[in-house]
């Protein structure tokens, strides 16, 4: 089985997010980068599947050369090879166009993404790739098994889950539960240095949106502390002051 795993290079979850004075760009100084958390889950499941049934796991990232340490980390975790599409990821449509283009030329049985990247976008790339390739897709998948040519998946829905099935090839976005993320070991780190990481040039994709400015949520005013001996005061405040109950 040939699996493609899409890896996004994102600020560490502990990062404080700050913007330039003109509010147009994200300040990257002092930021540590990681593999997007749900992409790590997708990668771990891809490795489990190929360890069981054989096959290869290719990781793809759309990014400039600063993302290479993140890609190497994916190789150290166990991916077979990697490709970087050499471009700053402008928006989800741009990224999806690059991934779809690569996937079309290299035909995969399964394309895995994370549920959502924790930086600019929100759960767009996966279904866009599927639509561009006219493939079925299943989002927010917390369990994925493959039997022959058929994938069985548990998809998250409001207040529950759905069990669905789908013939390969398909596009699946991974969320918690699908697999436990893996940590690279020494052997993995050593071998990652010599695993193939190719660089591809981007194809054109029209931009249909642009960021005007960024903002941070307003800080809350000072917390009102309520005496634990007088919990009634909380109920009163929630009803009469905050008007939320």
């Amino acid at each position: 089985m040939k699996i493609l795993v899409c890896i996004s290079h994102v600020p560490d979850t502990t990062s404080k997010i700050n913007f330039s004075d003109d509010k147009k760009s994200f300040v990257t100084q002092g930021i540590q980068y990681i593999i997007n958390p749900s992409d790590e889950i997708a990668l771990a499941r891809a490795l489990e599947l190929t360890e069981k049934d054989g096959g290869t796991v290719t990781v793809i990232n759309v990014g400039d050369n600063t993302t290479e340490p993140t890609i190497r980390k994916a190789l150290a975790i166990g991916a077979t090879d990697a490709v970087r599409v050499n471009a700053v990821p402008r928006d989800a449509f741009f990224v999806a166009t690059q991934i779809a283009d690569y996937a079309k030329k290299n035909s995969f049985d399964l394309i895995l993404t994370g549920r959502e990247s924790i930086d600019y976008n929100g759960s767009l790339v996966s279904s866009m790739v599927a639509e561009l390739l006219s493939l079925p897709s299943v989002n927010s998948v917390k369990a994925l098994t493959i039997e022959g040519n058929i994938a069985t998946l548990d998809r998250e829905i409001e207040g529950g889950k759905e069990v669905v099935s789908c013939a390969l090839p398909c596009v699946v976005s991974a969320t918690e539960g699908m697999a436990e993320p893996r940590i690279p070991n020494m052997r993995g780190i050593m071998s990652a240095r010599t695993k193939p990481l190719s660089v591809a040039e981007p194809v054109a994709a029209e931009s249909m949106q642009q960021i005007v400015s960024y903002d941070k949520p307003l800080p809350r005013t000072q917390v009102k502390l309520i005496d634990p001996a007088n919990v009634a005061a909380l109920v009163d405040a929630l009803h009469n002051e905050a008007k939320v109950i």
Partner: peptide, 24 residues
């Protein structure tokens, strides 16, 4: 809606309609 199903449909619509998308 930015719900599980809305998030699954909207990106496909964006491609089908050649539309820009504001998610969330």
């Amino acid at each position: 809606s930015n719900s599980f199903s809305g998030k699954a449909m909207a990106p496909r619509l964006a491609i089908k309609l050649q539309a820009g998308i504001a998610d969330g």
